[in-house]
């Protein structure tokens, strides 16, 4: 993992690739746009290959590795230059950074396996990249607000990114970061788990919803839109009015001139 060994962070690059993820593309495009703009504001040129689709995690997690492999190979081909690939999701970043080498390492195509290892080493999760590579300093423009953060499991445990999102929030002068009780417990999303095992998923998200309420936060942020879809969806259905928003979008809103989120 990049974060567990700071010496593996590269120097600030001139160019980066952005892999937006299918969920951000189709449901949370504003979060993707914000992630791109915040990197550009740091003077980095962001390349977004228009042919990108999905990292391949859904079939991979469901036991359909060949289908995942075909789509993963198509993605890797779109990011040939030796520059960082930044991903605004802990889970999709973990798929590309952690699982691609394994997915392609079954001896059937050594060249592709080597390509997967080279590619995987360049994959960074967005909040980690913003803090530890771009060394961003955010200037808060918004009114006082209490914010809590849900650490998604794959960002936390597969990417090993524990601190970056909170460090970014703490840069905002008017934002009070309030910890989420039992923060590191899963929200119950789990991709297809959320519909295949909806009873368990329900039991998990109900507890997550309760801890968000206990935190006293007005806003809940996270780096994984799957978790936000899960927690936000359960809150909306139950009439709990905490605002739920992806971290890049929140940071973008807070740091714009005349921000009023």
């Amino acid at each position: 993992m990049h974060s567990s060994n700071p010496s593996t962070y590269p120097a600030k690059p001139e160019q980066v690739y952005f892999f937006g993820t299918c969920l951000v593309d189709t449901i949370y495009p504003e979060a993707g746009l914000a992630a791109v703009e915040l990197m550009e504001r740091e003077g980095v040129q962001v390349i977004y290959p228009m042919a990108q689709t999905c990292c391949g995690q859904p079939p991979f997690n469901s036991g359909y590795w060949e289908e995942g492999r075909v789509v993963a190979a198509a993605q890797m081909a779109l990011f040939p230059k030796p520059i960082p690939v930044v991903v605004p999701s802990g889970s999709c970043a973990a798929m590309m950074h952690g699982h691609y080498p394994h997915l392609f390492q079954d001896g059937r195509d050594d060249e592709q396996a080597a390509q997967a290892r080279e590619f995987a080493a360049r994959v960074f999760e967005w909040s980690d990249f913003m803090l530890n590579v771009l060394a961003v300093r955010l200037q808060d423009q918004g009114p006082p607000v209490k914010v809590t953060y849900h650490p998604s499991c794959h960002l936390l445990r597969e990417m090993g990114v524990r601190e970056a999102p909170v460090r970014l929030l703490e840069q905002l002068g008017q934002v009070t970061y309030v910890p989420l009780p039992e923060a590191e417990e899963c929200c119950g999303f789990g991709g297809t788990f959320s519909v295949k095992h909806s009873d368990i998923s329900w039991a998990m998200v109900e507890d997550k919803r309760r801890t968000v309420a206990e935190s006293g936060a007005e806003v809940l942020v996270s780096m994984d839109c799957g978790c936000l879809m899960q927690i936000g969806g359960a809150m909306a259905k139950a009439g709990q009015n905490t605002r739920v928003i992806p971290l890049p979008q929140f940071l973008r809103q807070r740091t714009m001139e005349g921000a009023n989120p």
Partner: peptide
């Protein structure tokens, strides 16, 4: 799947314009 999803969660609504389009 959306039926299972909607049992206790508001269904996600696809954005009017995708990130591909916005960029």
């Amino acid at each position: 799947p959306l039926k299972q999803w909607s049992k206790f969660r508001k269904p996600p609504r696809p954005a009017k314009r995708t990130l591909h389009q916005l960029l």
